Measured scan of single mutants.
Amino acid sequence: KYFGTAKARYDFCARDRSELSLKEGDIIKILNKKGQQGWWRGEIYGRVGWFPANYVEEDYS
């Protein structure tokens, strides 16, 4: 189950295995919004990890 999707506004390079690298334009499935302050958990291309919420724009459609 996921909470919708978000589109990456910027590139983000994961610093460890718990984080999710993003490329601008990627569409991420949002799995959890209750991580550390400002971090969401998501899935993209079969990978799961945490990413900074301010790097994405949530899709409300």
Rank of each mutant, 00 (worst) to 15 (best):
L20W: 01
F12M: 02
S18I: 02
E58N: 04
R15P: 01
N32G: 12
D26L: 02
Q37F: 10
E57I: 12
Q36I: 12
K29L: 13
G49D: 00
G42A: 05
E43K: 11
E19S: 06
Y45G: 15
G42V: 01
V48G: 05
P52C: 00
N32A: 13
A53Y: 07
R9G: 03
A14T: 05
A8T: 03
W50K: 05
Y45D: 15
W39T: 07
F12I: 05
D16Q: 12
I27F: 06
G42S: 02
Y2V: 09
P52W: 00
Y10D: 08
A53P: 09
Y45E: 15
K7F: 05
T5Q: 08
I28K: 02
R17G: 13
K29N: 13
G35T: 11
F3G: 08
Y2R: 09
G35M: 07
R47T: 08
F3E: 10
G46V: 03
W50L: 07
A8Y: 03
K33A: 03
W50I: 03
A6V: 10
K29P: 06
F51P: 03
G42Y: 04
K34E: 15
K7N: 02
G42D: 07
I28M: 04
A6W: 01
Q37V: 13
K1W: 06
D16F: 04
R47S: 08
D59E: 13
I44V: 14
D26V: 05
K7S: 07
I27W: 08
A6P: 02
N32H: 13
G4Y: 10
L20A: 02
L31C: 06
Q37Y: 14
L22T: 06
N54Q: 10
K1S: 10
E19V: 01
E19A: 00
G4R: 10
R47W: 01
D26G: 00
K34M: 09
G49C: 02
A6L: 01
F3W: 11
A6G: 06
V56H: 03
A14D: 00
V56A: 10
E57M: 12
I44R: 11
Q37C: 13
G38Y: 03
Y60A: 12
P52E: 00
G42C: 01
W50F: 03
F51Y: 00
S21K: 04
I28R: 00
G38F: 02
W50G: 03
E24V: 14
W39M: 13
I30C: 01
V48M: 08
E57F: 10
E24G: 09
R47Q: 13
K23P: 01
D26K: 00
R17E: 13
S18M: 08
K29W: 06
G4I: 09
G42R: 06
I44P: 05
R17V: 13
I27V: 15
S18E: 08
E43A: 10
I28Q: 02
A14L: 00
I28Y: 04
W39N: 03
S61V: 10
A8P: 04
E24N: 11
C13Y: 10
W50C: 15
R9D: 00
V56G: 05
F3R: 11
I27A: 07
E57P: 00
E24L: 02
T5V: 11
R15A: 06
D26H: 00
G25Y: 00
W40Y: 10
G35C: 11
A14P: 07
D11M: 07
F51V: 03
A6S: 04
S21A: 09
D26A: 05
N32V: 09
D26E: 10
K23S: 11
K29E: 05
K7E: 05
D16H: 14
G4D: 12
G38V: 05
E24D: 07
A8K: 00
E43G: 03
K34P: 11
I27R: 10
Y10P: 01
Q36C: 09
Y2D: 14
S21P: 07
D59Q: 14
F51R: 02
S61A: 12
A14H: 05
K23G: 02
I27M: 10
I27N: 11
K23E: 04
E43W: 02
L22H: 06
D11Y: 06
Y45C: 13
E58V: 11
Q37H: 14
L20V: 04
S61P: 15
W39V: 05
G25V: 00
L31S: 04
I44G: 04
K7T: 14
